[in-house]
Design a binder for these strands. Sequence first.
DNA 1: CAGACTATAGACAAAATGTCAATATGTCAA
DNA 2: TTGACATATTGACATTTTGTCTATAGTCTG
Lengths: 134, 134
Amino acid sequence: MGRRRRQRGQRHGRRRRVMSFLQPCLLVMLHQRRAHGYSLMNRLGEFGFSPDMLDPSLVYRALRDMEAAGMVTSEWDSESRGPQRRVYRVTPEGEHDLAEWTGDLARTRQEIDHLLAAYERSERDPDQGGGDTG
Amino acid sequence: MGRRRRQRGQRHGRRRRVMSFLQPCLLVMLHQRRAHGYSLMNRLGEFGFSPDMLDPSLVYRALRDMEAAGMVTSEWDSESRGPQRRVYRVTPEGEHDLAEWTGDLARTRQEIDHLLAAYERSERDPDQGGGDTG
DNA sequence: CAGACTATAGACAAAATGTCAATATGTCAA
DNA sequence: TTGACATATTGACATTTTGTCTATAGTCTG
């Protein structure tokens, strides 16, 4: 008896997806207007990320990865006091990728719906102990 | 010009999520009725998995992992001709996990909605070139 | 100057995924 | 009876993605 599910990050109570959802969120924000990493990080709350489940380095890495993939470009912002900030903007290729990505997400949403429907259906209409095993 | 996005699996044209969605799908199917890996694999099409993006070993591994996590149990099916099959069923703990998991997925769904809404809103109501960067 | 906030980056560890190949049994046809 | 094919499961290894911790640096406030 005993040990529950996997044991992972110490900082996260509940292990939620951060994964492949982070990049599209950043891209949508950059699609709205250009911005630097730190401000994007602070706006991620809108998309369901809680600040304590999100290490800044994840955000910066995601941005660098997207730049390497050609979805965004960046330049150092000259006109700002304080530590230098790298300002990102979406490329035309990035706009194209974002359009595809939202299409994928719409499909993902449908599949989640399907799964939830299947679950709820089987709650109403149980068939435990049946068998397709033979 | 240029190299497109990442280059990865040769077999997948389009790189779609298989990820953490596989386990809940299997669990829902097992919630409906007990079954062995191979049959589950064949029913994954319902949930949006295309057969050519899904190596069987992923399915079997997912099942073993879920067993290690206490969500399902298995036994060899005695009464079946052919190669031995391992029949899985959900444990009470697995039912509990599944209920939580569907809750998480419902939240994920909402977050996808939010992202898509933000994207579509900015399509209708563009604000390019503005700046929160200063 | 210390300490807090803004801002970005690098290294390394751990976890999730993907790919390939091995094994075994049963059926069907040549 | 051999060869091909579908059923069925497993293991090893490579690659990719995520997570965590730490370093660096400028600016502002007291």
